[in-house]
Amino acid sequence: MNENVLLSIENLHVSFYTLRGVVRAVRGLNLQIRTGETVALVGESGCGKSVSAHAVTGLLPVPPAKIEEGKIFFDGQDVLQFNEKQMRGLRGVRVGMIFQEPMTSLNPVFKIGDQIADVFRVHHRIGKQKAFQMAVDLLDKVKIPEPERRAREYPFQLSGGMRQRAMIAMALASPKPGLIIADEPTTALDVTIQAQILHLLKELQKDIGVAVLLITHDMGVVAQVADRATVMYAGRAVEQGTVEEVFSDYRHPYTHGLLHSLPGNPEYRGAKRLIAIPGTVPDLRSLGNECPFANRCSHVKDRCWHEFPEETTLTAEHRFWCWYPTNLKAEDAHER
C-alpha cells in the first residue's frame, strides 16, 4: 500500500434500520485518499456517497444507522475504534467539513469572526483579541472582501458564496488540517460563484497540501477538479480510477449512462435526443446480491441478476465491477 495514504476506507458496509425495513446504504466500499489529492465520490441521490463520508467523521446517526462491516483508517489509526473524545480530536482538527448549505452549519446568532476565533481558541492558548485577528486573516485568505467588516457580521448578512468561504475558513482554522470533506459544496451556488469556490479550494490545496474528499452529483465538477473518482450506484462502487480513466475510458454501463445523461456532453453537438438510462433506482431495501444496475442496464444478462460482479482491475487505479462492460477501445475487449 502507498505510504502517502491518508484515509483508507476498506470494505465499508452501512445499513439503516428503519421501520419500513433495512436500507443497505453502502455495501463494500473501498477508497483511498493520499495526502494533497482530490478524490471525488460521485453518484445520484441515494447512492451512498454522503453516508460513506459521514461514516468517516462519526456523524452517522446511530441508530438507525449501523456500520455492519469494514475498517476506516486515518493516518494509520482505526477510526471506527475511536471513542467520542478521540473522534472530536479527528473531526474539526484533522478532518474539516463543508456542507451544501452553510447556513445550517454556521451558528446564526454568533458573528462569523467569533465562530472562527472559537476554533482557534480550542487549539491554541491565545486571547480573544488574538484569535479574532487570526480569524480576520483567515477570512482574507479565503478571499472574503473587507474581512475586518465581514468578521463582525452574522451569517445571514453574507451571500451564499461568502458563507461557503467562511465554512472553508473554519475547516482550515485547525492547526494541522489533513483532509477536507466537501459534501456538495457548490450545489446551492450559482455557476460563476461555484467556479470561484472550486478555484479557491484548488488554490488552498496547493498552499496547505490538504486532501479533499469531494462528494457530488455533478460529473462536470468532478471532471474539472478531481484527480481520481469513484462512481457509486445504489450503495455500491461501480467504477473507480483516475479522472482520465473514468471519463474517457469508462467500462461500466452506468458510468456511460451518467455521462450521456448530461446534455452538455460534447458528443451531443447537433443531437436531437439524449441517450437516457431508462427506469429508476431500485429500492435499497429489496436488493439482494444482484448487480443493482441490472434493472436499467442495456447489457444485462442472466448472471447479473444473481451475482454482484467481481472486481476487474485494469491499471493501478482503474477498476470496475461489471460482468459485461462497455468497451470504448475494441482492443481491450475480452469477452467473459
Partner: peptide, 16 residues
C-alpha cells in the same frame, strides 16, 4: 464557468 465533462477544458472552468 460552466463545468463540462470535457477533459480538454479541465481546470479552465475554474478561472473565476
Amino acid at each position: 464557468a460552466f463545468p463540462t465533462t470535457d477533459l480538454a477544458t479541465r481546470g479552465s472552468s475554474i478561472s473565476p
